[in-house]
Nucleic acid binder design. Structure first.
Lengths: 226, 226
DNA sequence: TAGATTGTTAATCGATTAACAATC
DNA sequence: TAGATTGTTAATCGATTAACAATC
């Protein structure tokens, strides 16, 4: 690679192996399962039990965890409570993350009131929308601002993550604006490929694609049965 | 890939090579890009142009298409119009699919009014909710029914795909009910692992997981800068 | 101690990348 | 013909699966 920045070499110090994105996603599932087991008063769980519950292989679960350290006791299993803590630490969920939602249509509203976020340290601090009628109102404790307030509110509320739910025509411009205010992590629901510098962590969620995968598979299984 | 589904052996008879799920998802992106290019009056596109637009490699694009046939002209490229048609055919988007939404909260409403679906042949025909206040009303042309009407409406409207947006506590029961009425494809937004027979095509969408991936990466890049 | 279960290494599998012959 | 681009085969890369030694 040209122009390798010094930070690149140091990275190795912190992380020997590249960790698959799927592993990270599965970590969230492990966390959820562990919380469930703890609620059921299971204080120790084995990789087999967790894996069975989540319908994956126990090999994979142990392999995933092994990227990050040794969390279990051989012959015994994992302490639910401890492993929850460790996974939260790995995922960065032991701290609070302030989030904003840009675009306060149906989807923006849905995400703003989504219960699952808050107990993960994900805190939606503000929403933005062009529509004057929506502005300066509270919705489930979340205030809606005009787009011109993006810069100020993000700074003031120390927001690090943005969720884009604006129409696809406006998504690119909004994403650039967010970048300028210092946002480096975006969850994008607009069906467009955003053009942002590499340093931005970008995740696309695309409903149409997912539904279309279903139609593909349905069509396929029809062929099977003639 | 997460949660690879096992029904693969039988498919082999009808389909020589196993096709990666990611390839199918990318096909949706190719389709979208092609539609964009056609709107811009580009009647012929090369794999390089499409790939550049989507920020993937042209090798991958051609490889993906090669699973399904030969759609281009060597030395020339692809006819946008033709390739659109072929991809729609592959994905099953040349026919209408009737869909229902179970759970008419914010998210259910958001999906019901999502514009991107209809021009893909995805037609939301009905919604269901426990809340009596929501029932028997129209919302953007979509009627909301009580849960007791699931069986009847799905049959009557010839619905093949269900979207689950109920709270996690109710998702499993709803999914079983849907299975009993003949639904074999489900897009599940509830953060629980559903237990359904293998034949059911199931796709989970999990907002928390995706956001958490962002927190993980943000935390990681912070470490790098020391 | 015997049984159970972890953590890690090795083997397998599958997907992506690259190269190139075919051909428009 | 020369240049461009596809489609496919081969090479590489990476992730999953399996096996097993370590050890509670």
């Amino acid at each position: 690679m040209l122009n390798r920045s010094p930070a690149m070499n140091e990275e190795k110090v912190y992380q020997e192996k590249k960790i698959p994105e799927d592993t990270i996603i599965r970590l969230s599932y492990y966390l959820r399962a562990l919380i469930y087991f703890l609620e059921e008063n299971k204080k120790v769980v084995s990789s087999r039990q967790l894996a069975e519950f989540l319908k994956i292989s126990h090999h994979q679960l142990r392999k995933d965890l092994s990227y990050f350290g040794h969390f279990g006791k051989k012959g015994v299993g994992y302490s639910s409570y401890e492993l929850i803590d460790r996974i939260k630490e790995i995922l960065g969920l032991n701290q609070q993350w302030n989030v904003c939602v840009v675009g306060f249509g149906n989807l923006g509203r849905a995400l703003s009131s989504y219960k699952g976020f808050r107990d993960q340290g994900l805190c939606i601090k503000a929403a933005f929308d062009v529509d004057k009628n929506k502005q300066n109102k509270n919705y489930n404790g979340i205030k809606v601002y005009g787009l011109d307030k993006i810069q100020n509110v993000i700074k003031k509320e120390n927001i690090r993550i943005a969720i884009i739910t604006v129409p696809k025509e406006n998504a690119k411009e909004i994403s650039n604006q967010l970048y300028k205010t210092g946002i480096r992590a975006i969850l994008n629901f607009a069906p467009v490929k955003l053009s942002l510098p590499q340093e931005v962590i970008l995740k696309d969620v695309d409903f149409s694609c997912q539904l279309t995968y279903l139609t593909y598979r349905l069509k396929l299984s029809e062929k099977k049965n003639f």
